[in-house]
Amino acid sequence: MIPDISSILFSGAIGLLVIGVGGLLLSNNAYRVLLALVIAEAGANLMLVIAGYRWDAIAPILTGDFTPQPMVDPVPQAMVLTAIVIGVGVQALALTLIIRVKKAYGTLNMVEIKKRMEMDFDRLSQEANQPGKLEDNS
């Protein structure tokens, strides 16, 4: 009745990835985009650890005796260990950018931020092109 353990875990990892990427695409609040990024990153970590898993094995760092035994693949675990720490750094950077955007524009609505950023870019490019045109005319 209960499905296999690896299929449960794979469906959990794929579900986390789908929820995270869907939230990244569909959220309207910048802070909620950051939360979706955290969730997608958790799904990717779980997927990597499942890739090196075997059911009849022991943990690589908890070997009590020295008889040869099968153990789970330690390489994806080491990669995930690094990815967790890097992920927290990326979260902190994204939160810093969100705080700067909130200070500059006073809103967290993604559509509003995009509109005002495009207005700023247009104004900056016009100011950059204006002296060149004057020199060409004279």
Binding site: L9, A42, I50, Y53, I61, V72, Q77, I84, V85
Partner: peptide, 14 residues
């Protein structure tokens, strides 16, 4: 999943 080091890091950092 027999990854106690990853579990410790996820619990503390994550």
């Amino acid at each position: 999943l027999r990854a106690p080091d990853v579990a410790m890091t996820e619990a503390v950092v994550g």
